[in-house]
Every structure is written in structure tokens, then in C-alpha cells.
């Protein structure tokens, strides 16, 4: 009796293990497929050139630059506001209906599909405020998209700071803001940075939100002002793999673009992980 119980458990547990390993195998599969198809395409010229022959070959420099611009721009929009909002949630807000409401709204904002952000950006920034299809509109749209991520990580990082820090600072006569600025934020900063890097990864891969707010189909020159359109890596990949002039011929070019995007996002994730690990070690010592 007990033996069959044990056998049953072994069978079920093994099945569970196999399924879990299969799940991780998916990510390995996708990663290496993109990697081995794209690696032969990557070259210095690929990163520094512009698309040629109806976007079937050439380089992806304008798309890379566009994505970097969007990362910096949306960061400028979201980081200050998101970090301040995170400080509000953990340091200033009282446990009342308002804090609950703000949390509810933040969570809901995080759950809104990115295409809805795209439409909102189009209706509000592009048409409503008259910014047009531009880097400005794109950065603002992406900024509100990553706002909840920044708020949450900031709040979580601040929660980890023991109250002793705050009390010690107050005891020395520091004001509330001095305490936050000089004591709390420096202590929480590394964790906040991790969240910031993850948000950057989200911006780098985001497509639906930039479709109608900033992305240009083909624009080989660099933007000169924030009112210009720009190409971007994820949108570029979408275009050349679905609606280019000659999709078959553009496959190697698309493979290279996909790998570049994946490396960028994966690199950012690695960076965040590495930073978090280094930090945890430091704290232990």
C-alpha cells in the first residue's frame, strides 16, 4: 500500500519535472534558434550601415539609434516621476483609501495592453496635444507605459530599508526629505537601478505602443529634433518580416535584426541580474 503510494508520488513528480524542463527548453529553443540564424549576419557593417535595396539587406544603424533615443527619452519621462511616486507610496502615503486607490490604479495601468497605450498616445500626444508622430510622442507614450514598473520596484526597494535608518537620521535632527535624500535613497538605489534596467528592456522590445506614435517605416537619416519620426529595432523587425518588398530575400537581414534586438534585451536582463547578485553579496558582508 505504502509502496504504491510512493510509486505514484515518484511518477507524478517525475512528470512535473519533465514538464518544467520542457518549459525552460522553450526559452532555450527560441534563444538559440534566433542566435544561430542571426550570428552569421552580424558584422560591423550591419550595425553601422543603413537599410538598402528595399530593406532586404544593408545595416540597421538608424533602427539601433532610434531605439537608444527612445530608451533615453522615455527614461527621462518615467524615472523621476516613477521614483518620486514610489517614494510617495512607501514614505508619505498613510494606510488609507487613497493609498489603496493609487495602488489599484498603478496595478491596473501595468495590466493595460500596450496597443491601448499606443492608441492613447495617438489620441492624446500625437493628435490632442499636436506633437504629431514624433520622438516626443513616442517617449511620452513609452514613459507612461513603464511608469508602473518603476513605481513598483522603487516601492519594493524602499520597503527593504530597515526603520532603524530612518529613526537614526531623525534622531540626528534631519528632516523627512533630508532623511530620504541622504539616507534612504542611497541605500535603496541599487535595487531601484535593477528595476530601471528591466524597464529599459521593456522599452527596447516594445512595438505596439510605438506603431502610431513614433515609428517610421524607412528613414535612413538621423533625427534632428524631438519632432522627427525615427526607426526602431522592434518595429523594423516587424516590418521586414511581414510587409517588406521581398520577404524571402530579406530573411537573413531579418535574422540579424532579431538577434540584435534579442541581444540588447537579453544583455539588459543579464546586467540587471548581475547587479542584483553583486549587491546581495555586498549586503551579506
Amino acid at each position: 500500500m505504502s509502496q504504491s503510494k510512493q510509486q505514484k508520488q515518484t511518477i507524478v513528480f517525475t512528470t512535473f519535472m519533465v514538464i518544467t524542463v520542457l518549459v525552460s527548453a522553450i526559452s532555450i529553443g527560441v534563444f538559440f534558434y534566433i542566435f544561430f540564424n542571426g550570428i552569421s549576419v552580424l558584422s560591423w557593417g550591419f550595425f553601422t550601415g543603413v537599410p538598402e535595396n528595399g530593406m532586404t539587406e544593408g545595416g540597421i544603424f538608424p533602427a539601433i539609434m532610434g531605439t537608444l533615443i527612445l530608451i533615453v527619452g522615455s527614461g527621462l519621462v518615467a524615472f523621476p516621476m516613477g521614483i518620486l511616486a514610489g517614494i510617495f507610496m512607501n514614505e508619505y502615503a498613510h494606510q488609507n483609501w487613497f493609498k489603496k486607490f493609487v495602488r489599484l490604479m498603478t496595478n491596473n495601468l501595468a495590466g493595460i495592453p500596450s496597443i491601448v497605450f499606443g492608441l492613447f498616445g495617438m489620441a492624446f500626444f500625437v493628435n490632442g496635444l499636436g506633437f504629431g508622430v514624433s520622438i516626443l510622442s513616442g517617449c511620452l507614450t513609452l514613459g507612461v507605459l513603464i511608469l508602473p514598473i518603476i513605481i513598483r520596484t522603487t516601492e519594493e526597494s524602499l520597503k527593504f530599508i530597515p526603520d532603524d535608518y530612518r529613526l537614526a537620521s531623525y534622531a540626528l535632527g534631519a528632516s523627512k526629505w533630508q532623511t530620504i535624500w541622504r539616507v534612504i535613497l542611497p541605500a535603496a538605489l541599487p535595487n531601484i537601478v535593477t528595476g530601471v534596467i528591466l524597464a529599459i528592456g521593456r522599452v527596447a522590445g516594445e512595438t505596439a505602443a510605438i506603431l502610431f506614435t513614433v515609428a517610421a517605416y524607412f528613414l535612413p537619416k538621423m533625427p534632428t529634433s524631438i519632432y522627427d519620426e525615427t526607426m526602431a529595432l522592434p518595429y523594423h523587425l516587424y516590418v521586414i518580416s511581414t510587409s517588406g518588398t521581398d520577404i524571402e530575400k530579406a530573411r537573413p537581414y531579418a535574422d540579424g535584426t532579431a538577434l540584435t534586438l534579442l541581444m540588447l534585451v537579453f544583455g539588459l536582463n543579464l546586467l540587471a541580474n548581475w547587479y542584483r547578485k553583486r549587491l546581495n553579496k555586498k549586503i551579506k558582508v
Binding site: 518549459v23 532555450i28 534566433i34 522590445g205 512595438t207 523587425l237 534586438l261 534579442l262 534585451v265 536582463n269
Partner: peptide
């Protein structure tokens, strides 16, 4: 690997 799965952009 689960984190990687979550991090891969949907366009990829």
C-alpha cells in the same frame, strides 16, 4: 530560463 521567457519581446 523562466525570466528569459518573460523578457523576450513579443515581436521576437
Amino acid at each position: 530560463f523562466i525570466e528569459l521567457l518573460a523578457g523576450i519581446p513579443s515581436v521576437i
